[in-house]
């Protein structure tokens, strides 16, 4: 099994977001960056599949700045074999240029499976994996919570509103990972040591501009200060009254 996993370096979910002086990006000072949560599921799935197959290779690919090397190393420390950084100064908000850069890298790689996270927790686009599949004309199941691969075929399950879709496809294919797919392993100390010696190739991403111009980045509108209606069950009539007559939502 030869598997590629595309990963993104994103701010830690615990990080406090501050707006930068340019008002179009975040202030990165003091922000810890990590491997995107959903990409951890993708890496874990790739490692499990390779282990089950008994042989193969897991290649980590990321588009990003030099700093994304650290993110790739995290995935290598989990057990992946080698990494490729497609270096770009800045990754914009349009998912298509990123998808194009990844597709160009993956096209002739001979991969049986290309895995992604379902979304990147910075841009929330939910797009790059699906777009790569379209560009490479490969079958794709997005937001998979379950994946079975056998005899060159795959079956994935994805949660939809009020049900679960069962998607069938032949390899090679693209799958994007949702929470529930597996429990990602933590890199062990030995893995972290070994990751330092694993190959990490750097190439130029050559991103095209895309069709999204950032006008402004703001903090979300402060919610209007609410009020405590009261204490205990006796406050229920006042709450119901407020919901009906003030907020008009009942």
């Amino acid at each position: 099994m030869k598997i590629a996993v595309c990963v993104k370096r994103v701010p830690d979910s615990e990080a406090r977001i501050k707006i930068g002086a340019d008002k179009t990006s975040i202030d990165e000072s003091g922000v810890k960056f990590v491997l995107n949560t959903y990409d951890e599921y993708a890496v874990e799935e790739a490692l499990k599949l390779k282990e089950a197959a008994g042989s193969g290779e897991v290649v980590i690919v990321s588009v990003g700045s030099e700093a994304a090397k650290e993110t790739i190393r995290t995935a290598l420390a989990m057990g992946a074999d080698r990494g490729v950084l497609l270096e770009a100064d800045a990754v914009g908000l349009d998912p298509l240029p990123v998808a194009r850069a990844l597709a160009a890298e993956l096209k002739d790689g001979g991969y049986d499976l290309i895995l992604f996270g379902k979304l990147a927790s910075d841009d929330y686009s939910h797009a790059v994996g699906v777009m790569v599949a379209e560009l490479l004309e490969l079958p794709c199941a997005s937001a998979a919570t379950k994946l079975e691969i056998a005899d060159g075929k795959g079956i994935a399950e994805r949660e939809i509103e009020g049900g679960v879709e069962v998607v069938e496809f032949a390899l090679p294919a693209v799958v994007t990972a949702d929470k529930g797919l597996n429990e990602p392993r933590y890199p062990a100390l030995r893995g972290i040591m070994m990751a330092k010696k694993k190959p990490l190739e750097v190439k130029d991403a050559a991103l095209d501009a895309g069709g999204v111009e950032i006008v402004l980045l703001t903090l979300p509108a402060e919610r209007k200060k609410g009020r405590i209606v009261g204490e205990g069950a006796d406050a229920v009539p006042a709450l119901v009254d407020a919901l009906r007559n003030e907020a008009k939502v009942l």
């Binding site: 701010p11 707006i19 975040i26 927790s121 929330y124 999204v212 950032i214 006008v215 980045l217 979300p220």
Partner: peptide, 9 residues
């Protein structure tokens, strides 16, 4: 950013 910021694009 998980709803912690909002882009106008």
């Amino acid at each position: 950013y998980a709803g912690k910021a909002v882009y106008t694009l």
